[in-house]
């Protein structure tokens, strides 16, 4: 306690994360109990992200490959992003009841748009002549999609995943409203955790989001094919296009 005292309330909050305290009713809040909340937070986020990726990446690749459905991939996605997750959760609670599945579903719907949009844009920004050459040499459509379009779209796809993951982690904070006790529990339920507990949870969620951003950012650089990294070192059409789209595709 004393070591972090100079940080004031902030220091107390960090102390709370690691040591916690016992309430008057005798239950443990913070500390090891925070670990449970964090695990639950990560669990619901990861499941939502896996499901969203499994749906959005193939769909985006396919729509991009046939160069159709830009309405679905871009416009509908934007609409999807405008619907607040709280409303979605309320909607699912009303129709399906509370629970892990409902929260996950809401988070999946939140996560899909950036991934779908980026996968679609990632494929359509592959130069037409590259795809034309592939087809003209006798590659099958599936091979074009997997061996040419997917690798070239990977950096943007990972950008989408990164955006979604950060959104999902932030939004999983409201999960306790639907009965899943994530780190948001400490933020919503001030009477149980106190102001210090609330601040501690906010710090934890922020840290989680930042770590996710950094990890996926590193992954994004790692999956960028070497030939593309070399290419983006020089001014080219691809570079200007992808930075422009990169900006619109992440909030």
């Amino acid at each position: 306690m004393s070591t972090l005292a100079f940080l004031g309330e902030f220091g107390e909050a960090i102390q709370f994360i690691f040591e916690g305290e016992t309430t008057r009713e005798g239950t443990q809040v913070g500390g090891s109990q925070f670990l449970e909340l964090t695990v639950e937070h990560i669990k619901v986020s990861v499941v939502a992200m896996v499901v969203a990726c499994a749906l959005a990446i193939p769909l985006g690749l396919w729509l991009g490959h046939i160069r159709r459905g830009s309405f679905l991939a871009i416009s509908l996605s934007n609409v999807g992003r405008a619907v607040p997750s709280l409303a979605l959760i309320a909607f699912f609670v009303a129709y399906l009841g509370v629970g892990f599945t409902n929260v996950t579903l809401a988070l999946v719907l939140l996560a899909i748009p950036p991934i779908l949009t980026n996968a679609y844009v990632g494929v359509t920004q592959v130069h037409r002549e590259t795809v034309d050459a592939a087809r003209g040499m006798g590659m099958t459509e599936a091979r074009i999609a997997l061996r040419v379009e997917l690798p070239l779209a990977l950096p943007l796809i990972f950008g989408g995943i990164k955006t979604s993951a950060v959104n999902v982690i932030a939004t999983a904070t409201i999960a306790p409203l639907a009965g899943v006790t994530t780190l948001g529990d400490a933020i919503i339920n001030v009477s149980g955790y106190g102001d210090v507990g609330r601040l501690a949870a906010a710090i934890s969620v922020a840290a989680l989001a930042v770590m996710t951003e950094l990890t996926l950012g590193a992954a994004q650089r790692a999956v960028t094919p070497r030939g593309i990294r070399l290419e983006s070192g020089r001014p080219s059409r691809r570079r200007t296009l992808s930075t422009r789209i990169g900006r619109t595709a992440s909030p």
Binding site: H127, E129, T130, V131, D132, A133, A134, R135, G136, M137, G138, M139, T140, V148, P151, L152, P225, R226, G227, I228, E231, R238
Partner: peptide, 29 residues
């Protein structure tokens, strides 16, 4: 697809695969 593998194909913008090495590009067919 099978027909195209037996016909050489070269276009204006070349359409080399930017993510593959020169050897991998040449080895496509």
């Amino acid at each position: 697809a099978e027909l195209r593998r037996q016909i050489g194909y070269a276009i204006q913008q070349i359409g080399l695969f930017p993510h593959l090495t020169i050897a991998e590009n040449v080895a496509t067919v």
